[in-house]
């Protein structure tokens, strides 16, 4: 059941979790913040995934192909009861499986990732299997915009269309940055809609931070018209924390505890753009 206020409350806490994981070794903070709203909406209001049905063959499946935004996924899991929240404190502890990319050993993770350009084709295999099983489950694959540099994405787009995988929904977290560069300065992606459309896909575009906008399009997706669907969600790297919004140098961040405290204040609106420290590790 969609409730905008509930989504916003969850999203705020997910962003707190992301900031908490951005210290003591750090994480890919900017890329995680950009897709926090998307993941909160999908798990709270779209996917039929609950803590008690994680192995139900009729569940929907979400794959995080841009795996480095996994803090947003784990934060969402913690908020929705899929993952025990205390485990987030195990980030980067070899005794758990919580690290910079998703691991299937963590409840709710459907497939591991890390290397870009893989999970669209893995999702296609699942989508094909689900069609043969005559189930109604939907496959959602979250792609990064930088990830679209990988040729395997476009190879998979071609094959997904040829196989009429209309139970497949790709969502591009279009935050306009890749690791160290704005996407359009490195290898321009626009007009991105036309590229996917040329591959025969249904293409929709939405503001990826506006829950009402997400709720106005997603319940009808993927369109079951014989071809796969892509939703391009325009987002902002670092969304919600002014000091790290839309900055090329804030992809991977390893903040001090004090900096995390400042950034959390920014997140809550009790201060703005306070962080001037350049103490960032860019990977």
């Amino acid at each position: 059941m969609y409730d905008r206020n509930v989504c916003e409350a969850h999203a705020l806490r997910v962003r707190e979790h992301i900031l908490a994981m951005s210290t003591d070794g750090g994480c890919f903070t900017g890329a995680s913040l950009s897709c926090a709203d998307l993941l909160v909406y999908l798990y709270s209001s779209y996917l039929n995934v609950r803590p008690d049905n994680l192995s139900d063959p009729d569940r929907d499946i979400l794959l995080l192909s841009k795996g480095h935004d996994v803090p947003a996924l784990y934060g969402t899991f913690a908020e929705l009861g899929i993952l025990e929240p205390g485990r987030l404190a195990n980030h980067l502890d070899c005794n758990d499986h919580i690290y910079w990319h998703p691991n299937r050993a963590v409840p709710g993770v459907e497939f591991h990732s890390g290397s870009l350009g893989h999970l669209l084709s893995v999702g296609m295999g699942m989508a094909l299997s689900i069609r043969l099983e005559q189930r109604q489950s939907r496959i959602v694959v979250i792609l990064g915009d930088g990830e679209l540099n990988e040729g395997s994405i476009w190879e998979a787009c071609q094959v997904a269309h040829s196989l009429h995988l209309d139970n497949l929904l790709a969502i591009v977290d279009r935050n306009w940055f890749q690791a160290n560069m704005p996407t359009e300065e490195l290898s321009p992606l626009e007009p991105l809609d036309e590229k996917f459309r040329a591959f025969g896909w249904n293409v929709l575009r939405v503001d990826g931070h506006d829950f009402d906008a997400l709720h106005s399009v997603l319940p009808d997706l993927p369109l079951r018209n014989g071809v796969p669907t892509v939703l391009i969600a325009d987002t902002m790297r670092g969304k919600g924390v002014p000091s790290i919004e839309a900055r090329a140098d804030r992809w991977f961040c390893n903040f001090s505890h004090d900096e995390v405290r400042q950034l959390t204040e920014e997140l809550h609106g009790t201060s703005s753009a306070t962080l001037v420290s350049p103490t960032l590790t860019v990977r």
Partner: peptide
């Protein structure tokens, strides 16, 4: 590449 990815998804 797509063939192997799909095979993994099917498996």
């Amino acid at each position: 590449q797509t063939m192997i990815g799909m095979a993994a998804g099917l498996a």
